[in-house]
C-alpha cells in the first residue's frame, strides 16, 4: 500500500516538476555547450566573455544589433577549429557612414 501511495505521489510530483522546472537534461546541454566552447578554444570563461563583448562592440559600431542575442559555436571541420558567431542584426538601414566613408 505504501508503495502504491509513493507511486501515485511520484506521478503527480513528476507532472508538477515538468510544468514548473526546466528538464534537467536541458540544463546539462546548456552547461555542456559553454564548457565545450571553452575546452575547444582553450579559453578561460572570463576571457570568452571579454571576447564576446568586444566582438559585439565592434559589430554594434556599424549596425544595430540585438543586445542579448549573440551565439557562439565552435565546430571542427577536418583539421580546423572554426568559431561561428551569430548576432541578430536589427536594422540594416541604420548603417553608420563609417562604412561608406
Amino acid at each position: 500500500m505504501r508503495e502504491l501511495l509513493r507511486w501515485l505521489l511520484n506521478i503527480s510530483g513528476k507532472e508538477l516538476d515538468n510544468a514548473t522546472a526546466e528538464m534537467s537534461k536541458d540544463t546539462a546541454k546548456q552547461r555542456l555547450k559553454l564548457v565545450l566552447i571553452q575546452d575547444r578554444l582553450e579559453l578561460a570563461p572570463d576571457k570568452l566573455e571579454d571576447m564576446k563583448k568586444e566582438i559585439w562592440e565592434v559589430v554594434s559600431k556599424y549596425m544595430v544589433v540585438d543586445d542579448d542575442f549573440m551565439e557562439f559555436e565552435v565546430r571542427r571541420v577536418d583539421d580546423l577549429t572554426v568559431l561561428v558567431s551569430n548576432i541578430e542584426v536589427k536594422d540594416l538601414s541604420e548603417l553608420t557612414p563609417a562604412i561608406t566613408g
Partner: peptide, 13 residues
C-alpha cells in the same frame, strides 16, 4: 522524463 540526454542531444553536442 527529460532527466537524461538522448541520442539527438549528444549528437548536437
Amino acid at each position: 522524463r527529460g532527466d537524461m540526454m538522448d541520442q539527438k542531444d549528444v549528437e548536437s553536442l
